[in-house]
Design a protein around this nucleic acid. Structure first.
Lengths: 215, 215
DNA sequence: GTCTATAATGAGATAGAC
DNA sequence: GTCTATCTCATTATAGAC
């Protein structure tokens, strides 16, 4: 805030490699603990223990519990968005522009990321929490709604005979079904009694949503 | 634990009218606060303030925060179950036994209860929380799974060509879509830009799920 | 940048008067 | 049965040494 420093709140130095690594560890730990216990159920101490750092370090990097939660959501949101948008671009470029292709472009990237990395698995649970809870409405609006609206527009174009509210409802149903599958693939396995291949489950989800949207 | 009292932990006297009324007020308040803030986010003090009783009273009736939460879920679970089971009985008796009729018997009673009473509205949010969160798996299993399995059996009988895991998955998708509509009818209205009549939304949900199950 | 020690707050629970 | 006052503990946050 001095006259010597005209650019306000800009970092003086780039963070060191060590600092960046610690920051990643902290966010990994936060992701895991938040996913397991929810926001209020998680404690800074749990996260510190999980990350193997002192409690103070969490505050240094995270800047408070709520800011830490925001960062945890924000970290992977961009990657997810980009994966989805480039998938829909590919569909636009290569066709065919079917309902199934649009839904797959929205759904598949999330599952692919989730399957390749345990951190993304935790993130999927977090997204489900955030989506279902009105207290995090602002977070959803900032990180997920813009991409969702791109896909919503595609659905509108693909289903000219359906009304806008109907498509909106169907889209909400589809997203909630996707989150259910993301967060409880194990549980579904138990109920069904057999082990369905995961690829089949995702195919099935896409067919379910497409049929619902058409119906 | 004395020899004089062979029946252990039985109440000596029936609770007074006043006590029962207080208990209801406490559960109403707990329902509202838990629905708004989640389990950890809610505090005993918030609930006491909402109920207009001292903090100690909450413990007297509720027996601890977790027991209070259990009671809150338990209080309306029986009513919901019975409404669903008698709806499916009516379908069995009067026919026709369609996918839509079975889904309607599962879905409609919850919405009807939710619409007629603000407490049920809070309860719907609680059910959504409980269903999505593995920490409350035991609660779901005790209060909701038995009824769900009755409907799952009906779906199995109605869709002989589909595999058991597929029906299980579709059922999970349908339940999550139902919970999404129960907890965010307002939000869907905003996205869609117009006001769809609520009856239409429920019809639409049933059609969506039926089409998905068939597809 | 990292870590230790501590401050300040707010929580759930309970004992005992009424 | 109801309510007041209090206990005990765990939490977030921070100040300051390294």
């Amino acid at each position: 805030m001095t006259a010597v420093q005209p650019q306000e709140s800009k970092r003086q130095r780039a963070p060191s490699k060590r600092s960046l690594a610690t920051r990643e560890r902290v966010l990994d730990a936060a992701e895991a603990v938040f996913a397991l216990r929810g926001f209020e159920g998680a404690t800074i101490r749990d996260i510190a223990a999980e990350a193997g750092v002192p409690v103070g370090t969490i505050h240094h990097h995270g800047g408070g519990k709520e800011a830490l939660f925001h960062q945890t959501i924000a970290r992977r949101a961009e990657t997810l968005s980009r994966a989805r948008l480039s998938a829909i671009q590919r569909v636009r470029a290569e066709g065919p522009m079917t309902l199934e292709a649009v839904l797959a472009a929205f759904i598949r990237p999330f599952f692919e990321l989730t399957d390749q990395d345990g951190g993304w698995r935790h993130y999927a649970r977090l997204v489900a929490f955030v989506s279902v809870d009105d207290r995090w409405r602002a977070l959803s609006a900032k990180f997920f709604d813009p991409t969702a609206e791109v896909f919503f527009a595609e659905l509108l174009a693909l289903l000219p005979r359906a009304s806008r509210p109907q498509i909106a409802e169907s889209f909400v149903f589809s997203v909630s079904a996707m989150l259910a599958l993301l967060t409880s693939r194990e549980r579904i396995g138990v109920l069904s009694g057999e082990d369905a291949a995961q690829e089949d489950q995702i195919d099935h989800l896409i067919r379910f949503c497409a049929a619902g949207l058409r119906g």
